[in-house]
Amino acid sequence: MRIFPFFLFALLAAGPLHATCGGSFSTFVAAFKTEAIAAGYAPETVEDFFASAQQDQGVLRADRSQGVFQKPFIEFSRRLISQNRIDRGRRNATRYKSVFDRIEAEYGVSRGVLLAFWAFETDFGAIQGDFNTLNALLTLSHDCRRPDLFRPQVLAALELYQRGDFSPTRTTGAWAGEIGMVQMLPSDILESGIDGDGDGHVTLKTSAADALMSGGRMLAALGWRAGEPWLQEVVIPGSLDLSHTGINHTKTVAAWAALGVMARQGEMAAGDLQASLILPQGHKGPAFIAYPNFNVYFEWNQSFVYVLTAAYFATRLEGATVYDAGNPNPGLTGAQMKALQAKLQDRGHDVGKIDGILGARTRRAVQAEQVRIGLPADAWPTAALLSRL
């Protein structure tokens, strides 16, 4: 979920949108033109903006083949985090020290957080995507899976075009419409774009200063709490009531400490800070305490495994040790996960789409069934749970 500039809210609140998903793509684009003109854009501007619009089947294929998010945390994090990325991240921290100093002073976002996003989103700017951004946004708006997420982005791109900061034919980026080194959607750029290098332009594709400053401002707007941590590896006692774990449960840091939860490195945050205890692969695997800033990550990306990996990588870039992987119980295959989600849904749980991905809603449902059946309630689905269901 992205934040949208006020003018987009005004457009959306003015009345029902004319361009509905599905059907003929050309009819859809024509309706979008009518909508844009009704919103106050000059007809010639609208015609020029949409003149080259095409549906992109490559975007739809990319949207439907995100199998990497089905991987469990240990495998996923080891795939994304390498010593090379750590070394390059630390070199970039030195190279852009003055930029990160400014971000921390103005927005309170720690440099490791932005370095991790920069690494994962575009490999520090090296791979920014070559999809035509307008076509990607229109294709995903026309597609009926998540039209409401992408439709406002078309209007935001039109606003950027009118300001001279977007080209319908030359602006490229990721398949989901994000642009630049830290991959920001058009509405993010309108709301949070910063001229970090002082050249008079917000150039997120070629200016690291612009991209990083803009990313920091966006995180601050999304609710980042200055000077507070976001994630920390912990050690849990064998006697812990596992039903209290998960991002949907919180206690004060002092309360977790009273239950025997300890930092694996350093000290935990202030005792009155609210926090969740996360066991991404159950009570036999790694354990993390997630502070309020961790929730802001879900405004950037809604994949649990991506968010946790990005947050953990940020701690590594700032000196944390490699997590203790432990010896977690084997997880489920993709097919088994889908079967489990179907069984959970049949029992009245909201797991969202049956897609084989262990997301937040599936974890909550798994934990509830573990409590009911009497299995360790760590939200990690196993063959034993699937069999019992």
Rank of each mutant, 00 (worst) to 15 (best):
S214F: 10
V307R: 00
P286L: 01
L138P: 09
A287V: 02
I103C: 06
N293Y: 06
L8I: 15
A176S: 15
L231I: 13
R363C: 02
F4I: 13
A209T: 08
S239G: 12
Q162P: 00
D165G: 03
G200S: 09
L160D: 05
T309I: 03
E47H: 05
P280S: 07
K343M: 12
W230P: 02
P328N: 04
G200C: 09
R61E: 13
Y107Q: 14
V109H: 07
L138T: 11
M213G: 03
R85D: 05
M268F: 03
G177D: 13
K97P: 00
N92C: 07
R170L: 13
E228D: 10
S141T: 15
S52M: 07
T171E: 09
R78A: 08
V261I: 12
A290Q: 01
R95S: 09
H18C: 07
R64M: 09
L160Q: 06
R264H: 07
L259W: 08
V296H: 02
F131P: 04
M218V: 03
T252G: 14
Q281M: 13
H18N: 08
D241R: 13
G23H: 10
G326D: 02
A208D: 06
R79F: 11
L138S: 10
P376E: 02
F32H: 11
K97S: 15
H244Q: 15
P292C: 04
L240P: 06
Q265W: 05
